[in-house]
Computed example of a mutant assay.
Amino acid sequence: KVMAHIDSLEGMIEIVFLPAYAPDLNPDELVWNQMRNMGTSKKPLKKGESLKNRAIVDLEKIRRNKKLVKSFFKEATVSFAAA
């Protein structure tokens, strides 16, 4: 059913099959790299602050930064996902 639907879109969407493990081809890995280098792991938690809430706040900051998100898709290894 999925492939029939994709075929019905007449080229408006393309399926790209990735290897089972290929973090360098996954744009999400760039988000986690951003979190490791600039986000949650670089700031100590405040008393009573939860790691989960901190991660959610940091991910929301990334989501709101459209320039940063676009830059993830300009990386050579994931540029196929930007088309």
Rank of each mutant, 00 (worst) to 15 (best):
M35I: 14
W32H: 12
L45K: 07
R64K: 14
A4T: 07
D24W: 13
L25A: 08
L25E: 02
K61L: 12
N53G: 05
K1A: 13
T77D: 09
K1L: 11
E14S: 14
S8C: 01
K70R: 14
L18T: 11
S8P: 01
P27K: 07
V31A: 14
K74D: 15
V2M: 07
K42A: 05
K67I: 11
A83Q: 11
N37G: 07
M12V: 00
L9A: 02
P19T: 05
A82H: 08
A83F: 10
D28F: 12
D24E: 15
I13A: 14
V57I: 09
I15F: 12
G11M: 03
G39E: 09
I6H: 04
N65L: 04
I15T: 12
W32C: 05
V69P: 02
I6K: 05
H5E: 05
D28C: 14
K70T: 05
L45A: 09
R54A: 13
E49Y: 00
L45R: 10
E14Y: 04
R64D: 07
K67N: 12
L18E: 07
G11L: 04
I13Y: 12
Y21G: 03
P44N: 11
R54I: 04
M3N: 11
V16M: 10
A4F: 06
F73G: 04
L30K: 13
S50I: 00
A4G: 02
D28I: 15
S50R: 02
G48W: 01
S71A: 11
F73I: 00
E75N: 14
T40C: 10
Y21E: 02
P44T: 07
N33M: 14
P27S: 07
F80H: 13
L45I: 07
A55H: 00
V57F: 11
K67H: 08
K66P: 01
P27I: 07
P19L: 11
A55Y: 02
E10R: 15
A4D: 14
G11K: 02
T40P: 00
P19F: 05
E75C: 08
P19M: 09
E49M: 02
N26V: 06
V2T: 03
L18D: 09
D28G: 08
